[in-house]
């Protein structure tokens, strides 16, 4: 006999082997809170949106940023600020729309796709922020070189000593190293959190996709 047919025969008798939950047992369960991965993704995504928005506010109080505000840099700061808010608004809207479309009554494959899509929106937002931060740092440095008297003095001293190249090289390497380390730390953090949270989902989604190849 086919193995599964044998199993099916027994499976039907399984019914009596489970503890029977009462009306009250089930009623108590519906009052409890879910701990599904969708809920976790929602919480983590909200935290990410908050983190990146608060970060720019927090930096406004920073001494060096205050100094920066005294420069003639509105031509760069205003467009950058507008862009960052527009992008935040756009991503949050797409994220919320995707999140709302997640339905447990969809087919397994479609449910997985929607969860991954929601997660991808936040991932794109983070990627945008990283690129945006790099661009902002580069623009800020150009403005500093143009308008920060201390820095201009340093450049002039280096030029007078014939060490211009050395100065710029050290400066560039330092900036790149700091950026790379920051990005690596962030990526590690993401890899740990989402890697663990979505490992099983990704594995199962790959398995399902393989079936339809």
């Amino acid at each position: 006999m086919d193995e599964l047919e044998l199993l099916k025969k027994d499976w039907k008798k399984e019914t009596n082997k489970f503890p029977k939950l009462s009306y009250d047992d089930i009623y108590k369960m519906i009052l409890k809170k879910s701990s599904s991965i969708v809920k976790w993704i929602f919480i983590l995504s909200l935290l990410e949106f908050i983190f990146w928005s608060v970060l720019s506010f927090a930096l406004k109080d920073n001494e060096s940023i205050k100094k920066f505000n005294n420069y003639d840099a509105d031509y760069a700061i205003i467009p950058l600020t507008i862009i960052s808010y527009l992008v935040l608004g756009y991503f949050f809207f797409v994220f919320y729309k995707n999140y709302k479309s997640i339905s447990v009554t969809d087919s397994t494959k479609s449910l997985m796709e929607k969860i991954l899509k929601t997660r991808r929106t936040v991932k794109h937002y983070v990627a945008f922020n990283l690129i945006f931060s790099i661009v902002a740092v580069v623009i800020a440095l150009f403005i500093e070189f143009e308008q920060d008297q201390d820095l201009i003095n340093l450049v002039n001293t280096a030029a007078a000593n014939g060490k211009s190249l050395q100065f710029y090289t050290t400066f560039t390497i330092t900036v790149i190293t700091v950026l790379v380390i920051t990005i690596l730390v962030l990526l590690l953090f993401y890899w740990l959190i989402y890697g663990l949270l979505l490992r099983r989902l990704n594995k199962n989604y790959t398995e399902l996709k393989k079936l339809d190849l």
Binding site: I37, W40, T105, D106, S107, T108, N204
Partner: peptide, 15 residues
């Protein structure tokens, strides 16, 4: 209807 929700929870949502 239960089959779908139960399986989806077990495979995808359950942490």
């Amino acid at each position: 209807w239960m089959y779908r929700v139960a399986l989806n929870t077990a495979i995808t949502l359950y942490r």
